[in-house]
Design a protein around this nucleic acid. Sequence first.
DNA 1: CAGTATCCTTTACGATACTG
DNA 2: CAGTATCGTAAAGGATACTG
Lengths: 123, 123
Amino acid sequence: MLQVTALTVEEGKLCPIRNVLSNVFGKWQSLILLSLEDGPLRFSAVKRTVGDITQRVLTENLRALERDGYLTRTVDPGPPVAVSYELTGPGKDLVEVLKPIVSWASENFDQVVAARKSYDARA
Amino acid sequence: MLQVTALTVEEGKLCPIRNVLSNVFGKWQSLILLSLEDGPLRFSAVKRTVGDITQRVLTENLRALERDGYLTRTVDPGPPVAVSYELTGPGKDLVEVLKPIVSWASENFDQVVAARKSYDARA
DNA sequence: CAGTATCCTTTACGATACTG
DNA sequence: CAGTATCGTAAAGGATACTG
């Protein structure tokens, strides 16, 4: 069976699922990765694509994604300075497995909304 | 291009990606869904599978997943009472698109850990 | 067994102002 | 332009005790 507990069966080893996914399944991470799907973008372009993320939080999330090796950060000192973010190989792979979930979400949105409505009506 | 902003292009409509995924990409939701992959489990069995989740939080998450229509909750009044949770059709579909990410996480765990180490060494 | 009820802490996030 | 610095809020989660 699948191992999803904090520690794997071999004690002392962290669960890869949790350890990797916790940095991808946040409110913004997957959205940011998806925004880079078609090629590198500059900081402000990522911000525009995601829409309602603050500068502080975007920076924070970009750094975390860079740290995990999903994207690179390239600085072109200007002036004005231009910083662009680009998916790495692993980052592109990750986006590929992320996309089916995104499609699923779009396709099943109505169903989920209906389920919520029916649940709330019963309670 | 993919639409990931809070409001979709047709104003006033919520983004399906965010709206659906925010209830799946939490710390526990995907783990709980995965625990039910092989068939229905009772409350305590889910808890055992996930490992270190508290009763309160597990209950909370199970309710949210039930509300979104991913699983059903069946009570067999005992005594002692036995409650079992089972994936619905949509729940099973969701688990299927979730599994590739889980596999990806397992396969790329070492790489991510290495990336973090190298990033931390530079900074 | 499968929860509720409380209380408390942590973490993520939002708002705003400032800067090389 | 792409951040950093502060401050404040809110949601998620942890610990523990209690119950039909």
